[in-house]
Simulated scan of single mutants.
Amino acid sequence: MTQTQHPTKLLTFEEFLAYDDRTDTRYELVDGELVEIPTESQENCDIAKFLLFELAKRFPITLLAYKDIEVEVSGRRATCRLPDLVVDSMKIQS
């Protein structure tokens, strides 16, 4: 991942969600700074799809999120990650 030169001030999570540089570039927020996400390789996409299908065999589909999800990471500064795959453990009942 490469650091970008867009905003010079640190962004809050809310500012990140509202940020639009009018391009198709995707970003993550890391410690308040925008970080450009490189284009995904086909291999990475294939692995994410394989894992999704394997997890779908073991968990209800309502617990799974594939792509296009933003996860706020708590810490000193605002951080937002864009994972390929998420299992919502908060909904899993033991």
Rank of each mutant, 00 (worst) to 15 (best):
D46W: 14
P7S: 03
A48P: 08
I47Q: 06
F16W: 02
T39S: 09
R58C: 14
I47V: 13
L55E: 06
L52G: 08
P38W: 14
E14M: 00
F53T: 13
H6P: 05
Q5A: 11
A18M: 04
L17H: 07
F50L: 12
L52R: 13
A48T: 12
L34V: 05
Y27P: 00
E14R: 03
R26A: 09
L17S: 03
A56T: 11
K49W: 12
L55T: 04
F53K: 08
F13G: 01
E28D: 11
E43C: 04
T23S: 13
R58P: 06
A18E: 03
Q5F: 05
K57Q: 05
L10V: 05
D24K: 03
E14V: 01
E36W: 00
C45T: 09
D21P: 09
R26V: 11
T4L: 07
F53H: 14
P7W: 01
L11T: 04
E15Y: 02
E40D: 10
F13Q: 01
E36M: 12
R58S: 14
R22H: 10
V35Y: 03
Q42I: 11
F50Y: 06
T39M: 14
Q42F: 12
E43L: 07
T4Y: 06
N44L: 11
G32A: 11
P38K: 15
E40Q: 15
K57T: 04
T8H: 11
D21V: 08
D46P: 04
R26Y: 14
A48K: 03
E43Q: 12
N44V: 09
T12V: 07
L10D: 05
F13L: 06
Q5L: 09
Y19V: 03
D24P: 00
D24G: 08
L52Y: 15
K57Y: 10
L10I: 06
R26G: 03
T4F: 11
H6K: 14
V30T: 08
L29K: 00
K57N: 04
Q5S: 12
E54L: 02
F50P: 00
F53I: 10
L55Q: 05
K57P: 02
T12E: 08
T8S: 14
I37A: 00
E28C: 06
D46A: 15
I47C: 09
L10T: 11
F13H: 07
P7V: 05
Q5G: 11
Q5T: 13
D20I: 01
F13D: 04
I37P: 00
Y27R: 05
F16N: 00
E28L: 09
L10Q: 10
D24V: 02
N44D: 13
I37K: 10
H6C: 08
E28M: 04
E33N: 07
Y27L: 08
D46K: 12
S41Y: 10
T23W: 05
L29H: 01
K49V: 09
H6I: 09
I47K: 13
L29W: 00
S41K: 12
F16R: 02
F16Q: 02
L17K: 11
D31M: 03
L11I: 01
P38N: 10
F16D: 00
L55R: 05
L11C: 03
F16Y: 12
R22G: 05
L51M: 14
D24A: 09
T8P: 04
K49C: 03
L10G: 03
P38M: 13
F16I: 00
V30A: 04
T39F: 03
Q5E: 14
Q42V: 10
